[in-house]
Write a protein that binds this DNA or RNA. Structure first.
Lengths: 242, 242
DNA sequence: CAGACACCTTGACCTGGATCAAGTGTGGCG
DNA sequence: CGCCACACTTGATCCAGGTCAAGGTGTCTG
């Protein structure tokens, strides 16, 4: 942190940040943004680099301010479970007691805002509303995980991939997707990560994509670019309705 | 709520409760227990009855004060994922935004302490520490779920059951189990629930128990009563180390 | 103490997805 | 423009765990 910056600069750093709108920082008033900025620091992580290590002492929280990251856990023999993907506005670090319960790795360049636990403690002491906001965030995540467990424990490969596609459709601010017409989405993560996210192998993911393509449920252009041709039916498949 | 009870009675209701030690109620000082009691109410649910319904508006939090419950989600065609078992001291209801993300059903009689959201709001306003405690609870749960996802997405049946057995060993206050000598545990839930918890079928659970028995890893007396004969090795299996 | 019900175990067989093994783009770079 | 490297796709085969179908076992009831 450059201590010679004016309080106005600090304020500016937060006021135009995506976290200001989408993330926990919206628990704080405009006039207090300088305090928020002074308790946090910006950082960037380049693709493939990890910035949270499962099992290491949890010292910081993070807000993703740009780019994407994947979150995952490992078994001793290398089996991997991707537990989530994070993008602009997402808050990371709640899933930890003393040490982090997951690792996080940049998916092609992320920018982050880092809040040391001590800073967060000062912030929550000063802005009680923030603590409530953190709990809210944890509750939202907890509800999502409930659905993820059902996916991993009980859904078929077909249903898992359909669920994944529908998940990727939600607009900004996590709005529910409109399923009436075709939807274009990007899949910025490699197939391997999709497989590890869905508890499948890369081959099964690939085959199931091909299947969906042959059934005219989706069309694929250039690996990362996918159009859901019949979102409603995909959504039905996701819910195990066919 | 019986409004004619004296404040002392109210105090007594909380002071000897298991939640006082183990659960979120330990965020509140002895002298304030009457307030806590006045914002909550006791209730009991008999075996097989459900008291939280997935998708219904989330109005209450619960502390389990006795007995056990299972938490689960359903797919439209009836496939079930048990997402957890709750017992004395556990706090329920965080996994919800507007509506509950799971259902909860008594496993042979539970007693509960119910906190309507409005009451909890008054309590957190008065005892800021409580809000922090709730977040802590959510974080603990979030960390557990991370491990659960790895189990469901990446572990074999053998590893899942071993993990389940080790989980059941933790002493009071969630202390880490001592694995050096045999450990006796009770499994108060039917095999069906274990299967739905581990993302397996009842047959596979049964077969794997028999396998463990033949390998002298466990001994079974009367279905619910199990002794882990070699906890250390079971723990190794659980972690995918053999 | 028989009979019934609920739950668990075991066996035989099947299958969805894993594993193993080639291909087939496609983007980067000389 | 051509070659390489890497990521994805596709095909052939295999197997862990699911499904289907009998038996056990314990417990409650009359």
């Amino acid at each position: 942190m450059s201590s010679f910056r004016s309080s106005d600069d600090m304020h500016d750093r937060c006021v135009h940040c995506i976290g200001r709108v989408d993330s926990i920082c919206n628990a704080i008033e405009d006039c207090d943004l300088a305090v928020l900025a002074s308790e946090s620091s910006k950082m960037t992580v380049s693709g493939g680099r990890s910035f949270i290590d499962e099992g290491s002492p949890a010292h910081d929280f993070f807000v993703v301010t740009g780019g994407r990251a994947k979150l995952f856990t490992l078994l001793p023999d290398g089996r991997r479970q991707v537990t989530g993907f994070a993008e602009g506005g997402d808050f990371l670090g709640l899933a930890a007691s003393d040490s982090y319960a997951f690792s996080a790795e940049a998916l092609g360049g992320v920018s982050l805002c880092r809040f040391p636990h001590a800073s967060m403690q000062r912030l929550t002491a000063r802005f009680p509303n923030l603590e409530h906001r953190l709990r809210e965030e944890a509750s939202r995540e907890l509800a999502l995980m409930q659905a993820r467990m059902t996916l991993l424990g009980r859904k078929t490969a077909r249903e898992r991939l359909a669920t994944f596609l529908i998940e990727r459709c939600q607009g900004p601010h996590r709005a529910a997707p409109v399923l009436k017409q075709p939807i274009e989405i990007d899949l910025p993560m490699p197939r391997t990560d999709i497989a590890d996210y869905l508890g499948l192998t890369i081959e099964t993911v690939s085959r199931t994509f091909s299947l969906f393509r042959r059934e005219k449920l989706i069309s694929v252009r250039g690996i990362t670019h996918i159009t859901l041709l019949d979102p409603e039916r995909i959504s039905a498949i996701a819910d195990g309705m066919e």
